[in-house]
Design a protein around this nucleic acid. Structure first.
Lengths: 144, 144
DNA sequence: GTAGTGTTACTACGTCCCGTAGTTTCAAGC
DNA sequence: GCTTGAAACTACGGGACGTAGTAACACTAC
């Protein structure tokens, strides 16, 4: 599977608001939907609700409410499709993860940033370090 | 100022629970206190309350409550000092930041981790990249 | 030993977020 | 027009947090 190109220089970096548990699960389902049906313009409430079948009992309207709240937070975007809406995540999972990490890092004073990064790397597995180095190399290869 | 050595391999990595705004400010004050009075075994409620003077009107008991909640979350540790308690952050700011970043990263699937890191680096300033590379070099120099 | 004073411990309350879902409205098809 | 699928609106209980008052308790100074 080809890696989607990173958008050309900071695509107005995604927000990363707090998310409740159910909200997170719904996002999960949405991301999954996106990966599966590339064609569709997003998942309907019905689609998302269906994904809960057998996994968790949840009312249709609950899914609606959650999706509504997620869209208020700009975590999902919706477009009309007939009389229904189609919901899609505003950002990829990876972009959101990265944004959250960035927000966390930006909270501390710049002078201590390196120490924080040191701690971060200290807890990293070697596989993670490898991933990081690869990513770093790729960024540098792209030049400025 | 000498950098404190990173604890010898994952010191039972710090939790990173959600924190309210006031809770964060109090943590901030505590960290600041630690940096200033190295000698003291922590800050008392009175100390922390004093730090709010001129910055924000807040009741003494409010500070107590907040510190109590923070200690329930294990974000701060307290020890008796006469009839008062002395509070100190359970972890350094940098360690907590790192732990939070790690938790965020660990939420996503390993297979997409590299992409997330790529996004993360994509939003980094060159100063940040430099810090990261320095930290990376240091980790590697330490060997396993 | 009695009255103050510093500290903690206990209790409380309003607000906001979130999980959860019922009820109402609206549009379209039959 | 009546049914039906979908959204819109409304609601409510629980938990976290900001906020702080009051009670209890121990030491200090008379």
């Amino acid at each position: 599977m080809a890696r989607p190109p990173l958008s050309p220089r900071s695509p107005s970096s995604p927000r990363s608001p707090r998310m409740g548990d159910l909200e997170r699960v719904v996002m999960e389902h949405l991301w999954e939907s996106m990966a599966q049906d590339e064609a569709e313009g997003g998942a309907t409430v019905r689609d998302v609700h269906a994904k809960f079948a057998g996994e968790r009992e949840i009312a249709y309207t609950t899914v609606m409410t959650v999706l509504d709240r997620l869209s208020r937070k700009d975590l999902v975007t919706r477009v009309r499709d007939g009389r229904a809406w189609r919901y899609r995540p505003s950002d990829t999972r990876e972009a959101l993860t990265a944004a959250t990490m960035r927000n966390t890092l930006d909270e501390i004073d710049v002078t201590n940033r390196r120490l924080a990064l040191l701690h971060f790397l200290d807890g990293a597995s070697s596989a993670e370090l490898a991933d990081l180095k690869a990513a770093l190399a790729e960024i540098e290869a792209r030049g400025s």
